[in-house]
Design a protein around this nucleic acid. Structure first.
Length: 571
RNA sequence: CGGGGCGUAGCGCAGCCUGGUUAGCGCGCCUGCCUUGGGAGCAGGAGGUCGGAGGUUCAAAUCCUCUCGCCCCGACCA
C-alpha cells in the first residue's frame, strides 16, 4: 500500500474526547473515528490490525476443531423469551419493534440463536462434539460507553459455543479452548494471564478470563507470585487464617461511649485497637432485601461473592437512610447483637476473639465481644476482597494485585440454555439428553485496544509484529529523486512478493513528518531510503520497539527483513 | 439514572462574566517560492447557520428558557 493513496488521517493533536492511551493513539494514528457514543468506524489501519487478530483467532479455533459460521445480528424476542433472558438481560439489550409489530433485539451474544440452530439440526450423539464460532459485530447498549474501543456499544467479538454429550467431553472441549486461547494471545504477542472468574449473569459452573496486563486496565486481578494461581477480584480466594490453637480467655463484654466515632478508623483509634480487632457491620440490599454483613475492620465486602452465597441477582450497599430504615440504628453504630435483619459473616471473623462491635445504639460500641457467646451468625462464608496481605490459596505464597483488561472469557455453561430451549439429542442408549454447552468469547476490537495500552511510548503505538497493520514501512525521503524512488520501489516490491505487508511512504513530505507518522502508527520495522543511501548506498532498518538500527546494502535489504520477520512470527 | 462539564473552521482552543463594526489564534488544508534525517520558513488563500429552537434587546457567540449531542465521576457491566 502506498501512503499517498491511503486513508490515514494522522493527527498532531489529541482530540479532547479521548481519555486513555489506546483511545488517544487510535484517534491520532488514524485507526478509528467516532460516529456516535460508543460507536466507531474502523479506518483502513484500524481494520488491518483487527483483521490480524481475527486471523490468528481463526487459525487457532480451526486448529482446535471449531468451525466458523455467521449468525444474524437481529434476533427475534421469542427466542429470548424462551430462554428467560428477555426479562433478565435488562436495558443493555437493545430492543425494537419491526413494521409488523414483532419484538426484536440486536444480538449482544448468541446463546439463544446457536442453541436454536443446533436443536433444529442435530439430534444424535454421533454428531457430537460440536464446536461453532463466529466473528461478528455485537451491540450492547452500555450504561456508559468509554475509552474508545475498550468499552464501546458496538464492538467486534469472536463468540464460540460448544455442544457435548457428557461432562467428561465438555471438560475436554473446555481444556482445548483454554489452550487455544493461550495460543491466540501468545501469538498476538501480548503479556496476559488466564484467571479464575465469576460466571456472571450468563450462568454456569466454571470460567476463566483472559486478561491483558496493563496499568490502565479496568479490572483488578490477583496473581500468586510463586505458583500459577490467578483470579479476578470477584472470585479470588485467600488461604484461610489459622485459628490459634489455644483460645484466648474471653473477656467480659463492655459497652463504651464512642461519640461521633462512626468510621472504622475513628473507632479503632479512639479505642486504641487495631482495625483487625473490630468487626464492622455493613448493610447490603440483596435483591432489595436488607441484610447485615459482618467482616473484619480492615476488610472489604466483595459484592459478587455475597450475591452468590445468597443466590441473589443483585447486591448493593445500602445508603445511610436505607440503613436506618432497615435497622433503626444510625450507620456507624451497627453491630450484630440484636439486629432484626438477617446477618451473614465473612469466615475470617470466626478466628477473632474479644473484638469491638457497634452497639446498635447511637454513640456506643461494645468491646470484648465474642462470636457464639454474645451473638450467633447463621450463614458464614468467604465474602471479602482479597488483599495483598493475603496468601495464595494453593501454595501459601504472597499474592500480588495487578491491573488487567479482559479480552477473553471462557465458560462451561452446562445445560442452562439447552434445557430452557429444549435442545436435546439421543445418546447411544437411545435416551434423550440436553446438550452440555460451553461458550467462549474474545473481544476482538478490545484486544487491539489492549495491545496498545500495553505497548506504546511517547511517540506512539508499538505494535507487536503479529498484529501490526503493516509489518514494514518503507520511507522514501526523496520521492522526487529517481534514484531514491527506484530503490524504495525495489524494496517495496520485493517485500510484497514475499507476502510481507508493507506500507510505502511515497508522500512529498519532509523527513520529520514521515518519521513522526511512522512512529505514531507503530509499524514494527522502518526501512529508510535517505541520507546514507545518498552517501554510500546503504539502507537503514530500524526496529520500532527498541530503536535498534542496522545498515544494509540495497540488494540485501529484502532478505534481511524476511529473515528478521520469519524469526519473530510464532506459528 | 444521579452529579459535574463542554458544544465557536477538519483538530486544539480564546472570545461569553461586563451584549455593540467584517468572530479570533495555533495546527491542518489549497497555491507559489524555498527547504529536505525528527511534525521547517516566507507570501497569498479557502473554510464558520458560534449545536438547535424560542425569547429579551435598537443590537445576541455573549443574557434567559427549552432542547439535542458529547465528555467526565458514580451506580452497572462481557
Amino acid at each position: 500500500m502506498r501512503f499517498s493513496q491511503l486513508l490515514l488521517p494522522t493527527l498532531k493533536e489529541t482530540p479532547a474526547e479521548a481519555e486513555v492511551v489506546s483511545h488517544k493513539l487510535m484517534l491520532r494514528a488514524g485507526f478509528i473515528r467516532k460516529l456516535t457514543s460508543g460507536v466507531y468506524s474502523y479506518l483502513p489501519l484500524g481494520l488491518a490490525a483487527i483483521r490480524r487478530v481475527e486471523n490468528i483467532i481463526r487459525e487457532e479455533m480451526n486448529r482446535a476443531g471449531a468451525q466458523e459460521l455467521l449468525m444474524p445480528m437481529v434476533q427475534p424476542a421469542d427466542l429470548w423469551i424462551e430462554s428467560g433472558r428477555w426479562e433478565k438481560y435488562g436495558p443493555e439489550l437493545l430492543r425494537f419493534t419491526d413494521r409488523n409489530g414483532r419484538q426484536s433485539c440486536l444480538g449482544p451474544t448468541h446463546e439463544e440463536v446457536i442453541t436454536d440452530l443446533v436443536r433444529k439440526n442435530i439430534h444424535s450423539y454421533r454428531n457430537l462434539p460440536l464446536n461453532l464460532y463466529q466473528i461478528q459485530t455485537k451491540f450492547r447498549d452500555e450504561i456508559r460507553p468509554r475509552f474508545g474501543l475498550m468499552r464501546g456499544r458496538e464492538f467486534i467479538m469472536k463468540d464460540g459455543y460448544s455442544f457435548d454429550a457428557s461432562e467428561k467431553d465438555v471438560e475436554i472441549t473446555y481444556e482445548k479452548m483454554y489452550e487455544a486461547y493461550n495460543r491466540i494471545f501468545s501469538r498476538c504477542g501480548l503479556a496476559f494471564r488466564a484467571v479464575e472468574a465469576d460466571t456472571g449473569t450468563i450462568g454456569g459452573s466454571f470460567s476463566h478470563e483472559f486478561m491483558v496486563l496493563a496499568e490502565t486496565g479496568e479490572d483488578t486481578l490477583v496473581i500468586c507470585k510463586e505458583c500459577s494461581y490467578a483470579a479476578n477480584m470477584e472470585k479470588a480466594r485467600a488461604m484461610e487464617q489459622e485459628s490459634p490453637d489455644e483460645k484466648p480467655e474471653l473477656l467480659p463484654l463492655e459497652k463504651i461511649e464512642t461519640p461521633g466515632k462512626r468510621k472504622v478508623q475513628a473507632v479503632t483509634e479512639f479505642l486504641s485497637i487495631s482495625p483487625k480487632n473490630l468487626i464492622k457491620t455493613m448493610v447490603y440490599l440483596v435483591d432489595s432485601k436488607p441484610l447485615a454483613v459482618l467482616l473484619r475492620g480492615d476488610h472489604e465486602v466483595q459484592p459478587v461473592k455475597l450475591k452468590n452465597l445468597l443466590n441473589g441477582v443483585e447486591a448493593e450497599l445500602a445508603d445511610d437512610k436505607q440503613v436506618f430504615d432497615a435497622t433503626g440504628v444510625p450507620s456507624g453504630y451497627l453491630g450484630p447483637m440484636g439486629l432484626k435483619i438477617p446477618v451473614v459473616a465473612d469466615r475470617e471473623i470466626t478466628a477473632m476473639h474479644n473484638f469491638a462491635i457497634g452497639a446498635n445504639e447511637k454513640k456506643y460500641h461494645y468491646i470484648n465481644a465474642n462470636l457464639g457467646r454474645d451473638f450467633e451468625v447463621a450463614t458464614i462464608g468467604d465474602l471479602r476482597m482479597v488483599t495483598e496481605e493475603d496468601r495464595c490459596p494453593h501454595c501459601g505464597s504472597n499474592l500480588e494485585l495487578t491491573k488487567g483488561i479482559e479480552v477473553g472469557h471462557i465458560f462451561k455453561l452446562g445445560t442452562n440454555y439447552s434445557e430452557a430451549l429444549k435442545a436435546t439429542f439421543l445418546d447411544n442408549q437411545g435416551m434423550e439428553n440436553s446438550y452440555i454447552m460451553g461458550c467462549y468469547g474474545i473481544g476482538v476490537s478490545r484486544t487491539v485496544a489492549a495491545a496498545i495500552e500495553q505497548n506504546y511510548d511517547k511517540d506512539g503505538i508499538i505494535f507487536p509484529l503479529p498484529i501490526a497493520p503493516f509489518q514494514v514501512i518503507v520511507l522514501n525521503l526523496s520521492p522526487s529523486a529517481k534514484k531514491f524512488t527506484e530503490a524504495a520501489e525495489t524494496i517495496y516490491d520485493g517485500l510484497g512478493k514475499n507476502s510481507i505487508d508493507v506500507l510505502l511512504d511515497d508522500r512529498d513530505e519532509r523527513p520529520g513528518i514521515k518519521f513522526k507518522d511512522a512512529d505514531l502508527i507503530g509499524i514494527p520495522y522502518r526501512v529508510t531510503v535517505g541520507k546514507s543511501f545518498e552517501k554510500n548506498g546503504t539502507i537503514e532498518i530500524k526496529e520500532r520497539a527498541n530503536g535498534q538500527t542496522i545498515s544494509v546494502e540495497l540488494h540485501e535489504t529484502v532478505d534481511r527483513l524476511l529473515e528478521i520477520i520469519r524469526q519473530k512470527m510464532v506459528r
